[in-house]
Amino acid sequence: ATFRHMEHGTHEDWAAISAEFMPFARALPDRVLAHLRLLDGDCGGFPVDRLTHSLQTATLAHRDGQDEEYVVCALLHDIGDTLGSFN
């Protein structure tokens, strides 16, 4: 794309952006799994690492009968800790 402001984007610009975006979007599951792997071994003083904690949380949500979206949110609830530890 060649525009500097959204309002100046042409059909060709958006076609180029879309072509680049689709491979990025398809790789989302791999990025999520990579972020989960970053939690492996990160105990932060707790008796289990963040990956184990996330798996435990998702398992408890599943056993409680929560829907799939809730279980996935429970699984992923700590992945931001590697990016914004104090936020």
Rank of each mutant, 00 (worst) to 15 (best):
L38F: 02
D67V: 11
R37K: 08
L51I: 05
C43A: 15
L55R: 15
D42S: 05
H8S: 02
E12D: 14
T82H: 07
T59P: 00
D13Q: 13
G45R: 06
W14V: 14
F3D: 09
D81N: 06
D81L: 07
A58T: 13
A25P: 03
H8W: 01
Q56S: 11
F24W: 09
D78C: 05
T59Q: 10
L38G: 07
V32T: 06
A58V: 04
E7D: 11
T10C: 10
D13T: 07
A34K: 06
F46Q: 09
D42Y: 02
F3P: 13
E69G: 12
L39E: 02
L83P: 00
H53F: 07
D81W: 06
D64A: 14
S18L: 08
L33H: 02
D40R: 06
E68Q: 13
R31N: 01
D13Y: 03
R4C: 09
D49M: 10
R63N: 13
P29A: 01
S85L: 01
F21K: 07
S85K: 02
L33T: 06
E69P: 04
T10E: 04
A74K: 06
S85A: 10
G65M: 03
D49F: 03
G9L: 13
L60C: 11
L38H: 04
T82L: 10
H53D: 15
F86P: 00
Q56F: 04
D81P: 00
H62W: 10
A74E: 15
Y70Q: 14
H62N: 12
G65T: 10
L38C: 10
L36Y: 00
V71R: 08
L51R: 08
A74V: 05
G65K: 07
M22N: 01
W14H: 08
D49W: 07
M6C: 02
G80D: 03
A74R: 09
V48I: 14
H77G: 03
A34L: 03
F46L: 15
F46K: 14
T57P: 11
M6K: 10
S54C: 15
T52V: 09
A15R: 12
R50D: 02
N87Q: 13
I17A: 12
L60M: 03
A27V: 01
F21Y: 10
N87M: 15
Q66T: 02
D64W: 00
M22A: 13
I79W: 00
R4I: 04
E7R: 08
P29S: 12
E20P: 03
R26K: 05
T57H: 10
A15D: 14
G9C: 07
D49H: 12
V72N: 05
